[in-house]
């Protein structure tokens, strides 16, 4: 007889804290890369929630600040590799923008481990899984976000 999973297993115990990470993926490279991870059945931790954007250049610093403010424990921004942008230069603009933003966030006391930028092409399913694993581990180490979250 096959073992039926008891209902209680579906409930996550509150003591094992799991971070929630928001991932902004560009439509053409990283989002497709994440799809490939699935097609290849490569496993990674279920902590990320994906938001599809047309291009990493679309991602306003506002989204990142807001994400930290509403309590996402970490974030991942991923675009096409430099030089491969579907929109020619969007990822380069993003790279410049986020270099400055990350300095600012570090200055504000946000742990740099929470804020991650990477490049994943549509052919790099395995790389996407690796990056997610790394990001989840990093965020787990620094714990739940407190700094910018409104508590009142």
């Amino acid at each position: 007889m096959t073992q039926v999973t008891p209902q209680s297993d579906l409930v996550i115990k509150s003591s094992d804290w799991e971070p929630k990470i928001i991932a902004f993926l560009c439509n053409w490279c990283s989002y497709a890369g994440a799809d490939l991870t699935g097609v290849s059945r490569i496993q990674y931790p279920p902590n990320i929630r994906i938001v599809r954007v047309p291009c990493s250049g679309r991602i306003s610093p506002y989204y990142i600040l807001k994400s930290l403010q509403v309590g996402w424990d970490g974030l991942l921004v991923s675009g096409c590799h430099p030089g491969d942008c579907h929109y020619l230069t969007g990822n380069l603009i993003a790279r410049r923008r986020f270099a400055v933003l990350k300095d600012l966030l570090t200055f504000m006391g946000i742990e740099p481990e929470r804020v991650n930028f990477s490049w994943v092409s549509a052919a790099e399913g395995e790389r996407f899984a690796k990056i997610v694993k790394k990001v989840v581990e990093q965020v787990k180490k620094v714990g739940p976000i407190r700094k910018m979250v409104k508590t009142l």
Binding site: T5, D9, L10, V11, I12, E18, A34, D35, T37, G38, V39, R41, I42, Q43, Y44, P45, P46, I50, A129
Partner: peptide, 13 residues
């Protein structure tokens, strides 16, 4: 692609 296939062994999460 981005959930059931990549978290096959963690149905609850």
């Amino acid at each position: 692609d981005q959930n059931s296939w990549v978290h096959m062994h963690e149905p609850a999460a």
